[in-house]
């Protein structure tokens, strides 16, 4: 698949994996908890412009999902192909949602 074979491992070779330090994971967790508190506060403290709070909530949720995928799921350290396919999956979802939305909005 890749042409720079000498720098790559043969399939099955034990490879030196990227080991994520404990402290780093805990830092990520603290960040996720802060984002959770933020999203609850935005909702409960009642910045009550409905549209605004939905968008804020979705931005915060997406930020959390990206952090979980990148660091907890090690996406950042994996083959870039997985990231690309993740992009394709999300694109598919955006197509589903936007086409259906156009249909309903323009009725």
């Amino acid at each position: 698949m890749a042409d720079n074979t000498n720098s790559r491992h043969l399939p099955g070779d034990p490879k030196e994996h990227h080991i994520v330090p404990y402290k780093f994971h805990i830092g990520i967790w603290v960040g996720l908890i802060i984002l959770t508190i933020m999203t609850v506060l935005v909702s409960v403290m009642g910045i009550s412009l409905v549209a605004f709070s939905v968008i804020t909530a979705m931005i915060i949720a997406s930020a959390k999902a990206v952090v979980v995928a990148n660091y907890f799921m090690h996406l950042k350290y994996e083959n870039k192909l997985i990231t690309w396919l993740m992009g394709v999956t999300l694109l598919l979802f955006v197509v589903f949602i936007s086409f259906t939305a156009f249909d309903y909005i323009t009725r």
Binding site: P14, V42, S43, G46, S48, A61, A65, V68, M73
Partner: peptide
């Protein structure tokens, strides 16, 4: 040889990610 653990972990994180979206969509509409 810990790929089994990694895959189990991946599944678990997916469960977490789905909840990350379910939570604001159902509980935090206000």
């Amino acid at each position: 040889n810990y790929v089994y653990l990694e895959n189990g972990g991946l599944y678990w994180h997916l469960v977490d990610i789905i909840w990350i979206f379910l939570f604001p969509l159902f509980y935090l509409i206000h």
